[in-house]
């Protein structure tokens, strides 16, 4: 069930990324909702689930863009490694490490994407790309993280309804 929810969520943010987000440019870049979704899932739900959800989100993103299939899957994979910060708990809050991971993952995503595009023969201006895309996205993506983090955190931590034993029809 949780992976079905992740699939639906990934698909929704992938659609939003190609339809709505190009209109929401800040500092010249559109926030990357798929990346933010993948980071939030990894930081809230844990590294174990991220092993499945991160490649799934990358695949859905690739299928809705002009990038070769596999590009985002590869470029988002550092998120799973970065999610180890969750286990280290450097600060009491979960949100601040999430912001840090979003920023670092944005840079990693940009570098891997540019490397893949260069490898397949596209003309990628690395200097301009770093200056006008990678660095601004390190600031812009964390700004929009709260939009996904908050509802995901609420859905994950809300109290579950208890029942009087297995199979009982009576619920509190």
């Amino acid at each position: 069930m949780k992976y079905a929810v992740a699939l639906a969520g990934s698909f929704l943010v992938a659609i939003l990324a190609t339809s709505v987000m190009p209109y929401v440019k800040v500092l010249g870049v559109a926030p990357d909702l798929v990346l933010i979704f993948a980071v939030c899932w990894a930081m809230i739900r844990g590294q174990g689930e991220a092993l499945v959800v991160v490649p799934m989100a990358g695949l859905l993103r690739d299928l809705t863009t002009s990038d070769p299939v596999g590009t985002s899957m590869l470029a988002l994979s550092p998120i799973v490694l970065l999610a180890v910060i969750r286990e280290l708990r450097p600060v009491e809050s979960d949100f601040l490490p999430t912001l840090a991971v979003v920023a670092i993952a944005s840079l990693a995503y940009a570098v891997v994407s540019m490397a893949v595009l260069t490898a397949i023969g596209d003309d990628v201006p690395w200097g301009t790309g770093m200056l006008r895309v990678a660095l601004p996205s390190m600031l812009v993506n964390p700004l929009f993280t709260v939009l996904i983090y908050s509802p995901m955190r609420w859905l994950t931590t809300r109290p579950k309804r208890e029942s009087f034993g297995v199979g009982s029809a009576v619920q509190l």
Binding site: P68, V69, G70, M73, L74, S77, V80, L81
Partner: peptide
């Protein structure tokens, strides 16, 4: 487990990119 996962995702991604380019 992470090492195997990383290798698997990298292989799958690169294979997908090749298929996509073809």
């Amino acid at each position: 487990r992470l090492l195997w996962w990383t290798l698997a995702v990298m292989s799958l991604s690169l294979f997908s990119i090749l298929l996509s380019e073809n």
